[in-house]
Design a protein around this nucleic acid. Structure first.
Lengths: 206, 206, 206, 206
DNA sequence: AATGAATGAGCCTTCATTCAT
DNA sequence: CATGAATGAAGGCTCATTCAT
């Protein structure tokens, strides 16, 4: 009996994942506006009605999508850098990891901002919001740890990490919207410069 | 005769402005997705058809809204700083001006990024896009001039200015989406720190 | 007093003619579906409201347009052929006149059929319909007279004339809708053949 | 399984046919201009949205309607005449078949001409247009064959067939618009006369 | 007589969602 | 669990017509 229930649950989860995958694919192909439930269901090999067996409504899937996006982000950050590196190298590696992730997957960035801005009525409960925040913070924590290893105290490290994140996000947004071309600049290069200047400043300060 | 035409023109302009105001208000209240023409017209005290006497289509009003927003931005930047200030003070004053403008009017930031991303079919013609880009650039140019006055050559100034803009935009976005509270930080303070560090770095470099 | 009234009347008529001309021009340019009152008024140098000083509603102008079209048709037929021609030559000349008129002005053909088919509620009163019918008949009467001059009695002439008209109208319709290309044929040539065969038949019969 | 799919398909087809019928009925009642999707859907007992499960857009249903009309036309022509008849009798039978079909169903004639004139945006793709043209041609081909059997070569037969079609179409149009009453004539009788005269001419020529 | 702003009803179309099967 | 037909509300937009000026 229990075994059967477990099998059922596993099946259910995998089918839910199937739809989630389809949603990501559609979302990537057509953007957040073009992603209709019809299209998502079709991509998953289902009919529209089936969608509602796995997600309560359309907005719900964006929450799930963002959660999954944050897992991939964390995986990318975790994989970066090596244990034997200096704190400065580690900072660079970890920061480049999250920046590179969003540079390569701009839709994942959209997702995060869309959810907070465009979606309030349902879909993003306060609790889910907290969870998502925590996972984002997790992805940024390695940078914060490296900053502390470089001599900053907790408060300073948090502040620098926030600035670092904001800087990257700003560059990514300018890049994603094409505004950076207006300046004839390259987002990745500017980000790298920022990290280098930051390391220098800290080393001089230390 | 001429007086009558002028009166007519003035009336017409003021009604157009009325609708523009309504659009801004609806946009603020319901976001860019909820801002339908029906809703904008209703807010302005009109029926939907009347809208089209003043704007060619839906996208057109966002173009007008952004154009007007950029004028207000430029006005804010122009008003900031004094002629006798040092270049460093001027940089701070001008940067704080555009940052403060967007901090106080977050929807104006949305507008700029929406128009670049979500608007293609009509309304944002290539020419209009150039004009809008130019006006944004105008608002940022005083910072660039100050950077040059502090000893940077044209290329360096452009790069630093781009970084400065990206940093501000990133902070504004984090603030606008509430993410910055997650870090227990304040966007304005962090921006000010960035400017101070920048000035320091330049003065040491000079 | 009376003189003044006459002047007024003349003015009025000429302005009505102005709008009628504009309507014909718009109708020619944009077809019957694309001809809006806005467009007609604009073409005439008026604003939409002025239209209603001269025509009761949109459909009314089509009646007037058709009436005027039939006057031009009659003028074209009257101008054709010469007094000294044989009846056979006259038949050919008069028939070619009305056929040529519609071949050169296909919109005038549309008008006639649109008014009868698509327009009933208002605009085409029974009385107006009679008047228009009479004027069309006037344009075809010279052919009927020629047929009688060739020896047919009144009844026979009417029948042959009806057939002749139907034949021409059929060819014009096929030409106007492009269907005649499907047969690789030319409408004018086929019409001419019909007339020749008709003359031959009558002459043999006589 | 297969049986179920077949049943589904049959159901689907019958519902599509239901809407097609509704469209034909509305079209007959209100003309081509009054036939809105709202009205068609209502007549079929549906809400407007349902329409789009069966037809891609408004023009598509007219394409389908015409296609189906041409099938009925062909069926009528195919059923006419007998194998043992003389070529002249066959010509008469086949010509009377298509003429009779359109005399009994004048809206089918409208449809054919509307689709060629009023339908451009989508719906009448070049390919569909060819197919429809071919089916119309199919319906007229038996007459052409009979003309050849009576001694005409291919080119002559095509020309006579075109004239025959034009004559019939002209008469049908005059009848449909009531203009023929103006001449106190009957379309069917005049068509029959045309065919008889044609046969006579050919036999004398042979 | 003419203006032209405004209406109101209508158009085609899309889509999240429901529900009987 | 899945279907998929159907709904209903909304979207952007057009246009003949009215009416205060």
């Amino acid at each position: 009996m229990e075994a059967k229930q477990q099998r059922q649950q596993a099946l259910n989860d995998s089918r839910r994942a199937l739809i989630l995958d389809a949603a990501r694919s559609v979302f990537e192909r057509l953007g957040i506006e073009g992603a209709s439930i019809r299209e998502i269901a079709k991509q998953a090999g289902y009919t529209p009605g089936a969608f509602y067996s796995y997600f309560e409504n359309k907005e719900a899937i964006y929450g799930a999508l963002l959660a999954e996006s944050l897992e991939r982000l964390n995986a990318a950050v975790d994989a970066a850098g090596s244990a034997t590196a200096t704190p400065a190298d580690l900072l660079d590696a970890k920061a480049s990891a999250w920046f590179g992730f969003y540079a390569a997957n701009p839709r994942d960035l959209d997702l995060g901002f869309y959810l907070v801005q465009g979606m309030q009525p349902r879909g993003l409960t306060a609790e889910l919001n907290y969870q998502l925040n925590d996972r984002l913070h997790d992805a940024l924590r390695p940078c914060e740890a490296a900053l502390q290893a470089m001599g900053l105290n907790a408060e300073e490290a948090l502040r620098e990490n926030t600035s670092l994140f904001a800087h990257g996000v700003g560059l990514l947004l300018l890049q994603h919207t094409g505004r950076i071309r207006m300046f004839g600049q390259d987002a990745s290069m500017l980000f790298e410069s920022y990290v280098i200047a930051l390391v220098e400043r800290l080393q001089r300060g230390a």
